[in-house]
Design a protein around this nucleic acid. Sequence first.
DNA 1: TCAAAAGTAAACCGATTTGTTTACTTGCTG
DNA 2: CAGCAAGTAAACAAATCGGTTTACTTTTGA
Lengths: 233, 233
Amino acid sequence: MSIMRNMKNENEAVPKKAIKRLQIIQAAFKLFTENGFYATGVDLIMRQAGVSKRTMYIYFPTKNDLIVAVLEFYRINYERGLKDLLARNDLSNREKILAIFDDAANWFGDAQFHGCLAVNAMGEFAGKDPAIEQACHVFKAWELGVFDKLTDDLQVNNPKDLAYELLVLLEGIGAIAQVLKQPCPIDLRQMVNRLLDSHQALTVAVWPLPVEQTTLNKLIPGQPMPPIVFQSP
Amino acid sequence: MSIMRNMKNENEAVPKKAIKRLQIIQAAFKLFTENGFYATGVDLIMRQAGVSKRTMYIYFPTKNDLIVAVLEFYRINYERGLKDLLARNDLSNREKILAIFDDAANWFGDAQFHGCLAVNAMGEFAGKDPAIEQACHVFKAWELGVFDKLTDDLQVNNPKDLAYELLVLLEGIGAIAQVLKQPCPIDLRQMVNRLLDSHQALTVAVWPLPVEQTTLNKLIPGQPMPPIVFQSP
DNA sequence: TCAAAAGTAAACCGATTTGTTTACTTGCTG
DNA sequence: CAGCAAGTAAACAAATCGGTTTACTTTTGA
């Protein structure tokens, strides 16, 4: 069970007032994910949530308000799912990054995977509802921020760039999985490892032997060489 | 002007019968791209196409039939835009790949960029209309095929994997651009080059200096070393 | 205990949706 | 030039949309 599919039911221990609100959001989240936003009517949402339409419109005066709340829930749910992993101190940052991709690959491989909700929302509301656009932006910026925190104390020259490129991989894998609906044919861990290596170490492929020592010396004059990493071709 | 935004007007020299059809498809393509599928009504499409509703429903019995035709047009339009580039014999395959990403970066950087139409369509119709799903699948499989052709006579171990990973980059960059609406902060050519290098050459990062010649020799015992490539860190 | 708060169920509203039909006009071609 | 194919414009239909309102019931807390 991947993080994003694991919707924890902590409806207890929460102010009772907020329970109804959460019921609505969770039902709407499921329906929006599976059927899209425009295609999901409010009548169906209220029926699935077990809530009257009047109550719904007290908590969310418009459907778009509900959509914004669902996108915030989407992010908070993901954040909570990652919390334990990110807090572990027995894992290196590289291992945490790899774990994120392992989990994502598991999620994307689900036949029920319908793509990133924020991307889908942009496809339907870009240029039409600023609040929804903003919520999508916040989600994606948060994702980038997760990788930022994991790369900034890594020994790399441009941790921000590395974080962005990791997000590129994550989004790319997801988008393709959403459309092709086939198991990802590549070794994702290997791809991530290679990306990390290419940032963490000065990478040089050599041919033919013998390589002159002077060639290696002038790669980055005056700078210490980064760690040695071997990669299979 | 990127390939995907350049909608050639070859309405002349085409059977007059098909002109109306193309008018409808082009208008629908623009509206679906900018406003989404569900949110775009057929009345607006027919008005923008300068065509009566009756004519529209003769060419496309249902709105979803039109959507399928638009997705096919989306692919054919892209294919035609790439044709000249792919046919050039003064460019290496690596240069053609880089040119595709240059063009895509230009396209994604447009403030009017609304993401890949096939991905957006899946977000709205996944699990609801098999014909639309199929059209999206065909589009993405075609994109993968373009990279397949460009990598299979490259000197790499797993050209299919490389092609898939190139598509991952393309999709990832696009999805992030769609949501964040910010200029891509990374050096895309460098990222692509590094990916190609990592497949084309045995890559090894070295530290610390001096590196012993024997270290290099034992990388892959008995196998010839691949070509030398220097990459900036 | 009792009144306010919060919830339900369902009718209702006007606007909009896809899709159909009718009456009329244009344009090509034998 | 006659006639048919193909087009337009607009009214129309049935369903559904987001959202409101009304009448009634349940829950809750001082």
